[in-house]
Computed example of a mutant assay.
Amino acid sequence: MEYRKKLIAIVGPTATGKTELAVKLAKILGGEIISADSRLVYRDFNIGTAKPDKEEMQGIPHYMIDVVDPCEVYTAGKYKKEAGRLLENISKPVIITGGTGFYIRSLLEGLDIPEIDPDVEFRKAMEKLDKQDLYKKLQECDPVMALKLHYNDTFRIIRALEVQHLIGKPMSEIQSMSEPKYEVLYVGLNAADREFIYNRINQRVIKMVELGLVSECESLIEKYGRTPSLLGTLGYREICEYLDGLCSLDEAIEKIQKNTRNFAKRQLTWFRANKEIHWFNIDEATQEEIISSILQ
């Protein structure tokens, strides 16, 4: 039987403490961390993505963070290739952590996605359309993929339309599954009381604003422009609406909180499809208790 490298993957909805748990576990195992978060790959997306800083990393090497500028297109296929290369080269125990189910599935579960270069002109044309028209186009040409994406997820909707434009086939048809290359212990973080996570989300959004989310968004616009990655990221999208005078700051905060809660629901739906995940409720067990169970 072919040897498969053993990994630990910590997954689950946003604001459940995945990064903190991964760091504690890495310190015990002498391991390193690979992020599976489609927003953390972008440089300067710091406050709005709750990107861990040096203090939070506690000296543990973190990979797949600050990979590209926000004006660049970064696909799941590219993530799989680059993260896969890291997995081949890291000799220490590896912990994958993040909430982007598409990244987890492509890297660890054998989802194969052809790496197709972006079409800049096509993207520019699509970016001129509003969200409803974009989503309608996707529903018409790839209804299977449309069911998997939220209509606010303009970044991935444009990517799906772009792929079909370039190769003449729906993205849902060109994705395939192969045998997973790794032996993975999946750890999922959730809560018995959903309101527990919602409260954590609400408080984190308030903290982001206090830390300077508005000024960070202004700096990103000044440096890179209103890129699809910016407008497709929770937090920045709503702050842009505030900066445009479409709502008050309090209304923007409420929108971020509501949209993030809805996003957490979609993350749970995605991860629950993986029956190999061992779930732990963060409102019933401490991180030390969870780590003890993982190491048994």
Rank of each mutant, 00 (worst) to 15 (best):
I113W: 00
F155Y: 15
I201S: 06
P61W: 09
K124G: 07
F45L: 06
V120K: 11
I113R: 02
V68N: 10
I277G: 01
D66P: 05
R194Q: 11
I104D: 02
H62R: 04
D117I: 03
Y242P: 09
I95Y: 03
D44N: 11
L138I: 08
E162H: 03
E183G: 00
A15G: 07
A285C: 14
C240T: 14
E183K: 13
Y182M: 04
S215A: 07
I201P: 04
G30T: 10
E222R: 15
R39E: 14
A191K: 01
H62I: 10
T75S: 14
K181A: 14
A264R: 01
Q139N: 11
N199E: 15
I33W: 00
E115L: 10
E289M: 06
A36G: 13
Q132K: 15
T16C: 09
Y242M: 11
K124Y: 10
K6Q: 14
A36P: 09
K258C: 02
V209I: 15
D37C: 03
L107W: 05
K181M: 13
L21G: 03
R156N: 10
Q164F: 09
E222G: 11
P13L: 01
L185I: 13
D53Q: 09
D44F: 08
E32Y: 05
G84A: 07
N190F: 08
A285P: 09
D117E: 15
N259K: 09
A273R: 11
T269I: 15
P114S: 11
Y103H: 05
F280G: 01
I65E: 12
E121S: 13
E222Y: 15
Q203L: 11
D112W: 12
K223C: 08
R194D: 09
Y63F: 14
C240I: 14
G31I: 04
Y224L: 02
H165R: 13
K136M: 09
D153L: 02
V187T: 01
K54P: 00
R85N: 11
M1F: 12
D133N: 12
I96A: 02
A15F: 07
P93W: 01
Y135V: 02
W270C: 00
V120D: 07
M126L: 13
K5M: 05
E241Y: 13
I65T: 13
I28W: 06
R156L: 07
G12V: 04
Y236V: 09
Y224E: 05
G77C: 06
S176V: 11
T260D: 03
Q58I: 09
E179R: 08
E109D: 15
E109N: 14
F45P: 03
G30E: 08
G48H: 02
Q257C: 04
I8K: 03
D112I: 15
C247K: 10
E218S: 09
E88C: 00
K265P: 00
Y224W: 07
F280R: 02
K265T: 05
K223F: 09
N199A: 11
E121A: 14
E210D: 13
L7T: 06
R39C: 06
K258H: 08
E127Y: 08
G31Q: 05
P118S: 03
Y151D: 15
A191L: 01
D69Y: 12
V73D: 15
K131A: 13
T19L: 05
A285G: 04
Y198S: 08
I33T: 01
E127W: 11
D119A: 12
K80C: 10
G31E: 07
K275T: 14
P118I: 01
T49V: 07
K5E: 05
K54M: 07
P61N: 08
